[in-house]
């Protein structure tokens, strides 16, 4: 017969066990498996493995394509997240004001976010088409350009175009998050500021932005993680081309694993990406905690 204290401990552990087990299965196993694969030469076809230590990582860091893909990933992530924030906050402020048809606008705004990526990409690729795209046609009709612009087949046009389409697709998420927070800022704060003679810009800078800091911090974290590992939009828009000018790390993972059939090398890229994301997360936590302590 167990003592009551030991019995409570056993019960506690038994109650925790399913959570720990699920956590281990859903989080630790895939991470450990990726790490295991990255240290092996693995044929994607046969799944035969051979221990090669850090050779995949050494080959990766020596490969110019990895460096270019990493830089492309940073350019894409920083630019897309920044534009999404600017556009998202701007539109949220507009929708928070008195606007005719505000409810309809709020509904329509979600449209790009709800549209499946494959469909959105098809539409945009058609719009940007070099021979019969509507954008080139419109620009040529008004005399802004004399020949079609290769939007997706010349560098840096391709990266700029992908960033713009990515911004269009994902900025509604920022709007939703920011708008929800905007609606909960007490009106009394603005009234007091107006009495003290604060203009619109001062109100935004000294009231709205500090009130949004928390939600923006979470939005930046989430959007950065999602954009850092974005695959389908970029792959479907350009396939990583022209050359490898829009090839990001997730596309490199796909190429290594499913085109070059080198699963181990693909896992090494994925593990490296995971490391970068952990680093980013650590910085985010540190900044957030410091802000909380200062507050």
């Amino acid at each position: 017969m167990l003592e009551p204290q030991r019995r409570d401990q056993a019960l506690g552990m038994a109650l925790l066990a399913p959570t720990v087990l699920l956590f281990a299965l859903l989080i630790f196993y895939p991470v450990a498996q990726s790490l295991f694969l990255s240290l092996h030469r693995v044929s994607t076809l046969t799944l035969r493995t051979q221990w090669i230590g850090l050779a995949n990582f050494r080959a990766l860091f020596a490969d110019p394509a990895f460096r270019i893909s990493f830089i492309n990933t940073l350019i894409w992530t920083v630019s897309a997240v920044s534009l999404q924030l600017v556009l998202g906050v701007g539109v949220a402020l507009l929708l928070n004001g008195r606007l005719v048809g505000r409810s309809a606008a709020r509904g329509l705004l979600l449209f790009p976010y709800l549209l499946p990526t494959a469909v959105a990409v098809l539409v945009w690729r058609w719009l940007f088409n070099d021979l019969y795209g509507l954008i080139n046609y419109a620009l040529m009709s008004i005399g802004l350009i004399s020949a079609p612009v290769p939007w997706l087949s010349q560098s840096p046009n391709a990266m700029i175009t992908v960033i713009l389409v990515g911004t269009w697709k994902f900025f509604p998420f920022v709007v939703i998050a920011v708008l929800a927070r905007l609606q909960s800022i007490p009106e009394s704060l603005y009234e007091a500021a107006r009495i003290d003679g604060a203009g619109r810009w001062a109100q935004f800078w000294d009231i709205t932005l500090p009130q949004l800091a928390g939600v923006l911090s979470v939005v930046i974290l989430l959007r950065s993680i999602w954009d850092f590992k974005e695959f389908d939009l970029i792959y479907l828009m350009t396939g990583g081309g022209p050359g490898i000018s829009t090839q990001t790390l997730p596309i490199l993972v796909y190429r290594q694993a499913f085109q070059l059939l080198n699963f181990g090398r693909g896992a090494a890229v994925a593990v490296t990406m995971f490391g970068f994301m952990l680093l980013f997360f650590a910085v985010h936590v540190w900044v957030t905690r410091r802000r909380e302590v200062e507050a």
Partner: peptide, 21 residues
């Protein structure tokens, strides 16, 4: 070649010919 040819694969080459461009 058409300006977008640096991204051309099967479909694009076929389209450019079929559409008469």
């Amino acid at each position: 070649a058409p300006p977008g040819a640096t991204n051309y694969s099967w479909g694009e080459v076929l389209n450019s010919f079929v559409t008469g461009r």
